[in-house]
Design a protein around this nucleic acid. Structure first.
Length: 472
RNA sequence: GGCGGCAUGGCCAAGUGGCUAAGGCGACGGAUUGCAAAUCCGUGAUCCCCGGUUCGAGUCCGGGUGCCGCCUCCA
C-alpha cells in the first residue's frame, strides 16, 4: 500500500502522487506572530512535521515551506477592521516588526523544542510584499480584481470554482453575511487583496496609495508560488483555514496562474481543552511554557499532540499528558531493551529468532502511516514489538534489525528517547554496593542505596539476571 | 440561516460490511520480589438512541439526541 491521504478538496482518501516523481512541494500555513503559539497551533505544525518526515521516510525529496506572517491581517475586509500586530504594537508601544520578530523567535524556539525539523524556508510576509503586488497587478489586468479608491478587491464571481474547497456557495455566503452598510465591495464575499489605512503602523507605498498593506490571503499565494512554483502538491493548515483563507488562496492563485494551485489539501482538526474551546477568559490557552512549568518534557506534548489521528478532534487535558508520559516511558524501554538484546542480554538463543516479528511490526507501522498518517496504528506496532523483546523472543540479529526499525520509526515520530546511557563508574559502584548489600540481606543498606540512587534520578530494575539502571 | 465533523470498555484511541471489536493509560486479582519498582499471567464493550438496507452493520441509509468546527482574526 502506498501513501494515501485525505484530500479536503475531494473529500476522499486518495493515492498520493506528486506532480514530479519523487519530489514533493509542500506549503504549510504557519503562525501569525503577534503572540506565542498555543498548543492548538502547535498541533497543526506538528502534523505538518510528521507528514514531512513520513514523506521523507518514504523516499521523497520534500521541498517544504512554512510562512511566518509578520504583518497582521485586517480583521475583516471593512474599514473598522484591526490588525493584531498593530494592536499589540500600540499596546506595548513598540514597533510592530519588533513584536513580530520577538514572537517569531519564540515560535522557532518552541517548535525546535518540540523536535520539529525546520522546513526548507520560513518566509516572512513582509519580505514578499513585492510579490504580492505583482499578483495583484496581474489579477487587475485579468479582470479578477477591481480597485476602489486605494483598495483592491478580488471579484469572487470571476472565479466559478469559488467554494469548491469549503463547500460554501456564494449565494449562501451572501445570505449569511452580515449587513454591510455602504460596502464598497461589489459582492459581500469579495475579499481584500490590498487595503489602505493611514493609521496603520505597517504600510507600504504602491501605485494604489501611500498607506497600503496586504490582505490576509495574498501573502500565502505569493510565498507559496514564489518559493515552490505555481503548482503545489500539498497544502496544509488547521481546519479553520479551509474557509475563507484557503478558498481565497485557490481563487487568487489559480486566477493568476491558470493552473491548479495544490493537488492535496490537508487540514488538522481543531484541538479543544478540557472539552471546550480554548479561550483567554478560561485561562486555558496553553503554550509550551505552561507545559514545561507543569513538569512535562516537551516531547510529552509532542506525543500527546500526534498520537491520535490528525483528522480526529483532540481534547487536551493534563490527565492525558500524564498518560502520554507513562506510555512514552514504555517506548523508551522498548528501545533500551532492543539495544540490550542486540548485545545478547535478554536475547533469544538463535540470532534470527523473532525476525519475523520485527518485520511484521515494521510492516504494520508502514501500513498505518501510509493510511493517511494513522499514527495510532503505527504506535501499536511499536508496542507490539515491545512485547516481543520483553518476552525475550528476539535474537541478537533480530534485535539489531528491531533497533534499526525503531530508529526509522522514531525518525518520523521523534518522541522516543534513544540517547544511550553514558557509562558512569560512580553509579555502577553504588548499584554494585546495593547488590552486595542485598546478597548479605542487609535490607536497610540496600534500601538506603536505592533511595540515594533515586535521588540522583536513577531508576533501578531488578531481575533474575541482575540489576540494570537508567536515568528517569 | 448555510456548510462540515464527531459520538467505541474507567480514560485515551484504531477499526469504513463478514472469523473471538487493535493498541495505550489506569484499575483489580495472581506470579515474581526481602519490601518495592520493572516484568509476566488473568479480568472489562448491549460500539449514543430509534428505524431501515443486507445472508450479515460499530461500519451503509433515514430520523433523533448530545458535543464541536467554519461562515468574523484564529492552526
Amino acid at each position: 500500500m502506498a501513501l494515501h491521504v485525505y484530500n479536503t478538496l475531494t473529500r476522499e482518501k486518495e493515492l498520493f502522487e506528486p506532480r514530479e516523481e519523487g519530489v514533493v512541494r509542500m506549503y504549510n500555513c504557519g503562525p501569525t506572530v503577534y503572540s506565542r503559539a498555543h498548543i492548538g497551533n502547535l498541533r497543526s505544525f506538528l502534523f505538518a512535521d510528521v507528514l514531512r518526515r513520513w514523506l521523507e521516510a518514504s523516499g521523497y525529496t520534500v521541498h517544504q515551506v512554512m510562512n511566518i506572517t509578520d504583518v497582521g491581517h485586517i480583521q475583516g475586509d471593512e474599514d473598522e477592521g484591526e490588525d493584531k500586530l498593530d494592536v499589540a504594537a500600540r499596546r506595548e508601544k513598540i514597533d510592530p516588526l519588533e513584536i513580530a520578530n520577538r514572537y517569531a523567535e519564540q515560535f522557532l524556539a518552541d517548535v525546535a523544542a518540540l523536535g520539529v525539523r525546520a522546513p526548507e524556508a520560513y518566509p516572512r510576509a513582509t519580505e514578499h510584499i513585492e510579490g504580492m503586488l505583482e499578483i495583484i497587478e496581474a489579477l487587475l489586468e485579468k479582470g479578477h480584481a477591481y480597485q476602489v479608491g486605494e483598495d483592491v478587491y478580488f471579484d469572487v464571481t470571476s472565479f466559478p470554482r469559488y467554494g469548491a474547497l469549503s463547500g460554501n456557495r456564494i449565494e449562501d455566503l451572501e445570505a449569511g453575511a452580515r449587513i454591510e452598510v455602504r460596502s464598497e465591495k461589489r459582492h459581500p464575499a469579495d475579499f481584500a487583496l490590498w487595503k489602505s489605512d493611514p493609521k496603520h503602523l505597517m504600510k507600504w507605498k504602491s501605485r494604489f496609495g501611500e498607506h497600503g498593506f496586504p490582505g490576509w490571503h495574498i501573502e500565502c499565494s505569493a510565498m507559496a508560488i514564489g518559493l515552490l512554483g505555481p503548482e503545489l502538491d500539498i497544502h496544509t493548515g488547521g481546519e479553520d483555514n479551509v474557509f475563507p483563507h484557503h478558498e481565497c488562496e485557490i481563487a487568487q492563485s489559480e486566477s493568476w496562474t491558470g493552473k491548479p494551485f495544490a493537488r492535496y489539501w490537508m487540514h488538522a482538526k481543531f484541538l479543544q481543552v478540557e472539552g471546550g474551546k480554548m479561550s483567554k477568559s478560561l485561562g486555558n490557552v496553553y503554550t509550551l511554557a505552561d507545559v514545561t512549568e507543569r513538569g512535562f518534557d516537551p516531547r510529552v506534548l509532542r506525543y500527546t499532540l500526534i498520537r491520535g489521528h490528525y483528522r480526529q478532534p483532540l481534547n487536551f487535558t493534563w490527565e492525558i499528558m500524564a498518560e502520554s508520559r507513562a506510555a512514552l516511558e514504555k517506548l523508551d524501554e522498548l528501545y533500551r531493551r532492543l539495544r540490550m538484546a542486540s548485545e545478547g542480554k535478554g536475547a533469544s538463543p538463535g540470532p534470527e529468532d523473532g525476525a519475523e516479528l520485527v518485520e511484521a511490526a515494521e510492516e504494520r507501522f508502514r501500513e498505518g502511516m501510509d493510511d493517511d498518517l494513522n499514527v495510532p496504528i503505527a504506535l501499536s506496532a511499536l508496542f507490539g514489538l515491545r512485547d516481543a523483546v520483553l518476552a525475550g523472543s528476539l535474537g541478537t540479529v533480530a534485535a539489531e534489525r528491531g533497533l534499526a526499525f525503531v530508529d526509522r520509526a522514531n525518525d518520523v515520530l521523534a518522541v522516543i528517547d534513544t540517547a544511550e546511557e553514558q557509562p558512569d563508574a560512580e553509579i555502577d559502584a553504588l548499584v554494585k554496593a546495593r547488590e552486595d548489600a542485598r546478597a548479605a540481606k542487609d535490607w536497610a543498606e540496600s534500601d538506603r542505596l536505592r533511595d540515594e540512587l533515586a535521588a540522583r534520578g536513577i531508576v533501578l530494575q531488578d531481575s533474575p539476571q541482575g540489576t540494570i539502571w537508567h536515568r528517569a
